[in-house]
Design a protein around this nucleic acid. Structure first.
Lengths: 120, 120
DNA sequence: CCGGATCCGACAGGATACTG
DNA sequence: CAGTATCCTGTCGGATCCGG
């Protein structure tokens, strides 16, 4: 059976380490990725719902970002044959799991604020 | 005594949640932040050392990024009065702790690769 | 050795209008 | 409703040269 690369093995190989980080960054960086993920997590998963939920995003941007997220395996696009058609975007397993990363980021972000405060 | 905002409290306030995430993103996103942090973690902490360690970065960019990292409380700049002057950049406590976030990102990145593989 | 100053191109993202 | 098509602007980062 093939071994999955553990995080410890990865640390000894900086190239893979950086590669994995960039994979993650591609999913959450940019102006709109996070608000979109947030909207879908919040239960808003139709195109126009997401657009209304995120103030000021244009359909062009929303379309482009959703396409990227789909290509990266973060969301799945489901078309329902109603009239007019309705489309729903849902998070994949990976898409849901990224919340763990976000939580770590929040944790660091908050403690960093404390750190900066204290050092003044 | 004042309470530190815990992560659980933050989750009920999406605005702070997103704010903290953006704080974190500002430290690690962009083309050079990660390589620079990596170099310093690796023990390369003088200007020209970092520049040599990171192939293809121009002094302009390195200077600009280091200045941002210093302003954000991630590194400290120490000037030694030698001739010619030598400068060393060191990670703050917060700067060291961000490795925890990076580890989580590696973890997710790797498992996401597995997820994408399996679904084909 | 450690940068600052200037100029420049590429690409992310915005504005607006239109369609199946 | 769920997007496309065009055009446009601003910011990121590169190239090159200069100075304490």
């Amino acid at each position: 059976m093939e071994e999955i690369l553990s995080i410890k093995e990865t640390k000894s190989c900086p190239i893979l380490y950086v590669l994995a980080i960039n994979d993650t960054l591609n999913v959450i960086s940019g102006k709109w990725k996070l608000p979109i993920l947030g909207s879908i997590l919040f239960g808003k998963n139709r195109f126009t719902e997401i657009q209304r939920n995120i103030s000021k995003i244009t359909p062009r941007m929303l379309s482009k970002e959703l396409k990227e997220l789909e290509l990266n395996g973060i969301v799945v696009r489901k078309v329902y044959d109603t009239t007019p058609v309705s489309v729903e975007y849902e998070l994949t397993t990976s898409g849901k799991n990224i919340v763990e990363v976000l939580d770590k980021m929040v944790e660091w972000g908050l403690s960093h604020r404390e750190f900066v405060m204290d050092s003044k």
